[in-house]
Amino acid sequence: MEHVEAVVIGGGQSGLASAHELVRAGLKPVVLEASDRAAGSWPRYYDSLTLFSPARFSALPGMPFGGDPDRYPHRDEVVAYLSAYAARLQADIRTGQRVTAVRPDGSGFTVELESGGHLSARAVVAASGRFGRPHIPHLPGRETFAGRVLHAADYRSPAPFAGQRVVVVGAGSSAVQIAAELARDSRTTLATRAPVKFARQHLLGKDLHFWLTRTGLDAAPLRRLLKRSPAQPVLDDGRYRAAFTAGAPDRRPMFTCLDGDRITWADGETERLDALILATGYRPHLPYLAGLDGALDPTGHPRHCDGASSVHPGLAFVGLEWRRSLSSNTLRGVGRDAARAARRMAAHLARN
Rank of each mutant, 00 (worst) to 15 (best):
R193K: 11
T100H: 12
A101N: 13
R251A: 04
L22Y: 02
L49F: 06
M63K: 14
A126Y: 00
L150K: 14
L190R: 00
V124E: 03
S328I: 02
S41E: 10
Y45H: 15
A55L: 03
Y155D: 15
C257W: 06
W322L: 12
V30F: 02
R336M: 13
G281L: 05
H301V: 09
L27H: 05
F317S: 00
A246D: 14
A91D: 10
R252C: 10
G216C: 08
D293C: 02
A295C: 08
L296W: 09
F109V: 00
V8W: 09
S58Q: 07
Y155L: 06
R75A: 05
A84T: 13
A290S: 15
E21C: 13
G216P: 12
E2F: 01
L60S: 02
S41I: 05
R98P: 00
F210V: 12
Q232Y: 09
T144I: 05
L89I: 08
V79C: 09
E181M: 11
D70S: 04
S58P: 01
H74M: 10
I9H: 01
P140Y: 08
V102T: 09
L217E: 06
L273G: 04
A162Y: 06
V176W: 02
A242I: 05
G300I: 03
F65N: 04
G170W: 00
G62P: 00
T144F: 02
D274S: 08
A25D: 10
G67F: 10
G108E: 09
T50S: 13
Y45A: 13
G132V: 08
R340P: 15
F255W: 03
Y46Q: 14
I136E: 06
P69E: 07
H118I: 07
T270H: 03
I9D: 00
V78R: 06
V334W: 00
T245R: 06
R214M: 08
T270K: 03
H209L: 05
R241L: 08
L51D: 02
S18M: 07
V7E: 00
V124K: 08
R56G: 05
T213N: 11
G291Q: 12
V102E: 06
S48A: 09
A220D: 06
F145M: 09
D105S: 02
L296D: 14
R44D: 15
K28N: 15
R193N: 08
L32T: 04
Q232M: 12
V23E: 07
V176H: 04
S115A: 12
A152Y: 01
M63N: 04
I263Q: 10
Q164D: 08
L27T: 09
A199D: 15
L326D: 13
S229L: 03
R224A: 12
L276F: 07
P73F: 07
A152T: 12
R37Y: 06
D185Q: 12
R187D: 15
E321H: 09
R98L: 04
D267G: 11
A191G: 10
P287C: 07
R224W: 10
M345V: 13
V4E: 11
L212H: 09
R272E: 08
A266N: 11
G141I: 05
A25V: 07
E33Y: 02
L331K: 03
K28G: 13
G294L: 10
V78G: 09
V169S: 02
R214H: 13
Q90M: 04
T188K: 14
A183D: 15
G294E: 10
A347G: 10
